[in-house]
Design a protein around this nucleic acid. Structure first.
Lengths: 226, 226
DNA sequence: CGCTCTACCGTACGACGTACGTTAAACCCT
DNA sequence: AGGGTTTAACGTACGTCGTACGGTAGAGCG
């Protein structure tokens, strides 16, 4: 016995039904969250799944289709507060915070979302919820349409901005470099910037607070003084 | 005469000083604006300049360095109103509109900006200007720091959102598909969305108006009622 | 005129997405 | 149980990308 098998390749052919769309999407999201968008590669994805590169193509037409499916999957998992539990303003705030939380928890997915050319059927449920709340808050039909887009835009921009800051600022060395650059600026050319340097550095620290500050301002501007 | 020359390659060696950083950046921006971010390739860039691919590497360390330089070049060309000419609120609005205009005139550059990991020395002049105006408008030091970030975030998010919409919506076929999808939605699940469909489609049409609507709301929320 | 320097270039390598054809695992039907 | 069919998984290959490396020629200087 123990016939010395011919040195078998590190991975045997995987059994028949090891793959399905859900497993692939799980692996893709894991890959994006762990290693970033630039590491999201068909080859890396297949390796993570323990299959050959081309196996994935039996379930998705290509990388773009996977990207779309990842976006859809994530947008479907937004945590929203139970409907109609309070005044529209506070509820709206919570919906936006849920959206923001999703984006910052999956920064690479956000990057992926903003890099792709946009299909239409995005966050249907969230949009509907927002529109309903805006209408209940007293906005006209046209104003509600404008307002929901503004909230989405601010939320996306904020998440994008902060996750990029976060990636850079997590290294102490970068923080120090920014501080040095701020102090080296000519105060006569950039008086406000130099003068407010401490507050700027401090404000960059807590991205969540920053988002909520702007969100409150936006809501107040859209809905009127509280 | 007319010694039949050996079929010479379509491009002779370029003379000695055909290239310099400025020419390269001009070509890069042109390429980005005309053909989009995914067409921004070292090979395409060199061809546009009429040189071999590797010639560019004598002036920049690599593609990333060119991308950074492009971003810097563009951010330095923001059109801002002359300083101190009116009330801070209106001036602030114009500064933001200048930033937004830049982003929408160079959509691929914006995409490039948001995809890269962020160096620190961004739009120094614009930031300083914003901070000064916010301070003049009566905000505390901390509030001014928060406010300027919120304005930048909303502007970036809005430009990104709208240019992506624009690219997709310029084809009539896509517009029709979106309309059809909206009408096909179950009204009992998404009542607000279905009900507001006409306003939504209309609001998407004029990105500039949409941006200014949100900007006014944000400014009002940040600075207090006008 | 020859020397040197360096801006330009040709080639090549590894990584990418994926078209194409092959193979073998599972299921079905006798 | 055995043969046939289907199709999920796979290997190979092509064209693309960024760019490391070494060669080459054009301009300036002695």
């Amino acid at each position: 016995m123990s016939v010395t098998q011919p040195v078998r390749s590190p991975r045997r052919r995987a059994p028949r039904n090891t793959l399905n769309p859900d497993r692939i999407l799980d692996a893709a999201i894991g890959l994006l969250d762990r290693d970033g968008a630039e590491a999201f590669t068909m080859r890396a994805l297949a390796e993570q799944l323990g299959v050959g590169t081309m196996a994935v193509y039996s379930h998705f037409r290509g990388k773009d289709e996977i990207s779309d499916a990842v976006a859809q999957r994530l947008l479907d998992t937004i945590e929203m507060p139970p409907a109609g539990c309070g005044e529209p303003r506070a509820e709206l705030r919570e919906v936006c915070r849920g959206l923001y939380r999703l984006f910052t928890e999956h920064p690479s997915a956000l990057q992926l979302l903003t890099a792709r050319p946009q299909r239409g059927d995005d966050a249907i449920a969230v949009i509907d919820r927002m529109l309903g709340l805006l209408h209940r808050a007293g906005l006209s039909r046209a104003d509600a349409a404008y307002a929901h887009v503004a909230l989405m835009q601010y939320t996306v921009g904020s998440a994008l901005w902060n996750t990029r800051r976060a990636r850079a600022l997590c290294r102490e060395e970068v923080r120090e470099r920014v501080r040095a650059k701020l102090e080296a600026l000519p105060p006569d050319r950039y008086p406000a910037l130099v003068s407010l340097a401490p507050e700027l550095l401090c404000a960059q620290d807590d991205a969540g607070r920053q988002y909520e500050h702007g969100l409150d301002a936006m809501l107040q501007g859209l809905l009127g003084a509280s």
